[in-house]
Amino acid sequence: MSHSSKLHKNRCLLYNQGLMPYLEAHEWQRSLQGDRIHDPNLDDVLILLEHPPVYTLGQGANSDFLKFDIDKNVYDVHRVERGGEVTYHCPGQLVGYPILNLQRYSKDLHWYLRQLEEVLIRVLAVYKLQGERIPAFTGVWLQGRKVAAIGIKVSRWITMHGFALNVCPDMTGFERIVPCGISDKPVGSLAEWIPSITCEEVRFYVAQCFAEVFGVEIVESQPKEFF
């Protein structure tokens, strides 16, 4: 990287959204990714939002990890093109969808996954909590409980999907699945350690730590192309 480009940080547009249906957010990500495949010079984006209760399965995910009949259920279930197994989203879980052009950073998916983990480990450190990685698994753990799941999809080095951090969700929805296909490691939420924590305050730290880890300038923005 030349000296001058170090001085000019990449901009990353921050779209802070509220509660958004999963399929609407998915469609939005795909359109942002498509725009950037078409024009790689567009700014990177970080979307932060929450979803109404929904189960999603990664591309090769095993539906045996659902503890209910996928055809006779009352829950929203979607199979999508990210990597990873089944996961659960609901209010109180902060979801981040970075739409990044990895050609600006590193064309290495393992590097990218570790950077996403690093963002969340730094967020936990703000609260004096020691987030951990477990070799061979993707995500972030806190005292043996998985508090953040990560699953990505990359096309022509443009990313979509991302991470989900359990801030203060109703955890009962996780009882109906084997989260991420890992049966012997429980899920947890930050509220177990910090009862008063909210997604609202955590958003701020996620954006800040994301800017640090990726070396970008966060620009709070209102999306115009989608709504």
Rank of each mutant, 00 (worst) to 15 (best):
C199D: 02
L116W: 09
E27F: 09
P186Y: 00
A211I: 11
F68S: 03
D43R: 07
Q29D: 03
K185G: 06
R36S: 10
L7V: 13
V216Q: 15
G84C: 01
C209A: 15
D39I: 09
A136L: 01
R203E: 14
N62W: 06
E85M: 05
R82M: 00
S196Y: 09
Q17F: 07
R79Q: 10
V77M: 10
F65L: 03
L42A: 04
S221P: 09
P40I: 01
V178Y: 06
H38S: 11
T56K: 03
G215M: 15
P135Y: 04
D64S: 14
V219A: 12
R30E: 04
M171V: 05
E175I: 02
V187P: 02
Y205M: 06
L14N: 02
H3F: 14
R82D: 00
R145Q: 11
G60C: 07
L102H: 14
N16K: 10
R156W: 01
Y112V: 09
R82P: 00
C199G: 02
S189D: 11
G188S: 10
G131C: 12
I197Q: 03
E220G: 08
Y55T: 00
N166A: 12
G162H: 04
P223D: 14
K9F: 11
G131T: 10
I194R: 07
G139Q: 06
S183W: 04
L113E: 14
E81M: 06
V126Q: 08
R176I: 09
Y127W: 14
L165P: 04
L113W: 12
Q208P: 03
G188A: 07
E118L: 10
G92F: 08
P52A: 05
N16M: 09
D71N: 14
R30S: 02
I177A: 10
S196R: 00
D39V: 08
S196Q: 11
P135S: 10
Q59V: 07
N41G: 12
K67L: 10
H8Y: 15
L14I: 15
E50F: 06
T138I: 09
Y22M: 05
L13W: 05
